[in-house]
């Protein structure tokens, strides 16, 4: 415990440029207000409670190698640097790469403007762009998480073949049963000796 605390203070001392190591509640609040959904730090960070702490994915649990990676990520001020920060998830890394640390910090004043600068990347490949997932408050790294209606439209197009086949099969089934029903109708009337009126049933 003590060793870990020492690491934290050491890190903070070594990184005066990087600023305090807390998550960015501005983004969280803006996304929650816009989407009406609750999110947490795991939107961009490795740990749902943010970077501070001693659990996996938090600063207190980093190895020296992780620390170096963290430092590299923190000095990625301009866009275009490939980063792999131990306290960020892939979306967090992507943000740093796409926008740069400087711009990210500046965007805290107007968090949702980030959406316009994010382009049309879609990290989880669920067919909804990361920017849109930010607006929806759905996770950009979960393939099965998205605004239900958007997912419906996307998946309808992706699985068109299965769905068309299902519709054809259902059509055949209903067609077959309808004809069997009429057949039984005829047979029943036949059994009655044609006493009933010959109306299709």
């Amino acid at each position: 415990m003590r060793a870990r605390l020492a690491t934290i203070s050491l890190t903070l001392a070594l990184l005066p440029l990087a600023g305090p190591a807390h998550a960015h509640p501005e983004f969280e609040k803006a996304i929650e207000a816009r989407s009406g959904r609750t999110i947490d730090c795991a939107f961009c960070h490795a740990h749902p409670d943010g970077p501070e702490g001693v659990h996996a994915g938090q600063i207190g649990a980093l190895s020296p190698a992780d620390m170096q990676a963290l430092n590299r990520a923190r000095t990625a001020f301009e866009p275009g640097t490939e980063v792999d920060s131990p306290i960020l998830n892939d979306f967090g890394d992507h943000l740093v790469t796409a926008l740069g640390k400087k711009r990210l910090v500046a965007l805290r004043q107007a968090p949702l403007k980030m959406v316009d600068e994010l382009g049309d990347s879609d990290l989880d490949g669920d067919g909804i762009s990361d920017a849109q997932e930010m607006l929806d408050g759905t996770h950009p790294l979960m393939r099965h998480h998205g605004a239900p209606w958007s997912l419906f439209v996307v998946n309808l197009q992706r699985s068109w073949f299965e769905i068309v086949m299902l519709i054809i099969a259902t059509f055949f089934g209903v067609y077959g049963i309808s004809h069997l029903l009429r057949w039984f109708g005829h047979e029943a009337r036949g059994a009655l000796g044609g006493e009933e009126d010959p109306k299709d049933g």
Partner: peptide, 10 residues
């Protein structure tokens, strides 16, 4: 087309 969990906050 619609994952049931999509209605849940993640």
């Amino acid at each position: 087309c619609i994952p049931f969990d999509a209605f849940l906050d993640y």
